[in-house]
Amino acid sequence: MGNVTYRHFDPWRPSPVKEESRSQIVESHYFNVDRVAFESSQVGHFERYILHENNGDTVAVLAVTKDNRIPFVEQYRIPTHRWTLEIPAGHATSPSERPLDVAMRKLRQEAGFEAEHYTQFGRFINTPSFSTQHTSMFLATGLTAVDRSSIGPESPRSNVRLYTVDEAYRMVLNGVIVDAKSVIAVLRAHCGLDDVQQH
């Protein structure tokens, strides 16, 4: 992260709207959906649907092999009806599973690697217009190949592809890698990872 603030910004200013009521309309393992009513001095009464995830942050893993390549997993995504290239990622399966535990599990399950070192290097809000979902990002190094497990019905045995940072960066620029967490990870790697401390 740079030390220069280019625009002063206060994210904790008072809210311009007042929440009046909230009711849960969808409940699932990973997320719930609420119908929320608000009041605004400018537009009056209005409603929004808000998705909030359960069991903490989504976790994504930027793994780097000893020959400086990043594993990407081929995933078939039903909502967009297309295959994507994504870094390993997922959700906690219970409130007690820590983000680091999720990172270790998803790297092993999806990419077929275990790592000696994990360092959290970022966190972002996925879709702040309608969701509370945050993604915590981990750098994983010192990789060892292990057996993978099945991913799920959408991609029961997808391929893992290894690309250098420069190759992945060009794929981001060319619109081949379009998954947001993967784009963010590749751009961060392209800027350099020397300042990410290993634990």
Rank of each mutant, 00 (worst) to 15 (best):
G90A: 04
S94L: 06
F113L: 07
N126Q: 12
P95A: 13
K106H: 09
E86G: 00
N126Y: 10
A140R: 07
A92E: 01
A145L: 09
R82Y: 08
T84E: 13
T127Q: 11
G122F: 06
F130H: 09
T144N: 13
T84H: 08
P128R: 02
A145C: 05
Q120H: 08
K106I: 13
E97N: 05
K106S: 05
F121A: 08
T135V: 15
F130S: 10
A111G: 10
M137G: 06
F113E: 02
R123F: 01
W83P: 00
E110W: 00
I87Q: 03
R105W: 09
F124M: 12
W83I: 00
A140C: 14
A92R: 02
T144I: 14
A140M: 14
A145K: 15
A89F: 04
F130I: 08
L143S: 12
S94T: 13
G122Y: 09
Q109W: 01
F121G: 09
A140W: 11
S136Y: 00
M104T: 02
E116R: 15
T141C: 09
G90I: 02
G142L: 09
H134V: 05
Y118M: 05
P88E: 06
F124Y: 15
H117P: 00
A140S: 13
R108I: 01
A115F: 12
P99N: 05
V146F: 14
E86P: 00
G112R: 10
A111I: 04
T93K: 13
L85D: 00
D101V: 03
G122K: 02
E116C: 07
T84Y: 09
S94Q: 07
R98F: 07
E116V: 06
G90S: 03
F124S: 12
P88R: 01
F121W: 14
N126T: 14
V146L: 14
T127W: 07
K106E: 15
F138Y: 15
L100T: 05
E114I: 11
T119M: 05
P99M: 02
I125S: 13
H117C: 01
P128K: 02
E114W: 03
A115R: 05
S96G: 03
S129D: 15
R98T: 15
H91Y: 13
D101C: 02
Q120E: 14
E86F: 01
A103N: 00
L100M: 06
F138I: 08
Y118D: 03
N126W: 04
P99Q: 05
R105N: 01
A145W: 06
G90D: 02
F130W: 12
T135E: 11
H91C: 05
P88A: 09
D101T: 11
P95C: 10
R123Y: 03
R123I: 11
S96E: 13
E116G: 08
T135K: 13
E116M: 12
L143D: 06
Q133R: 15
G90M: 03
I125M: 07
K106A: 02
G142E: 06
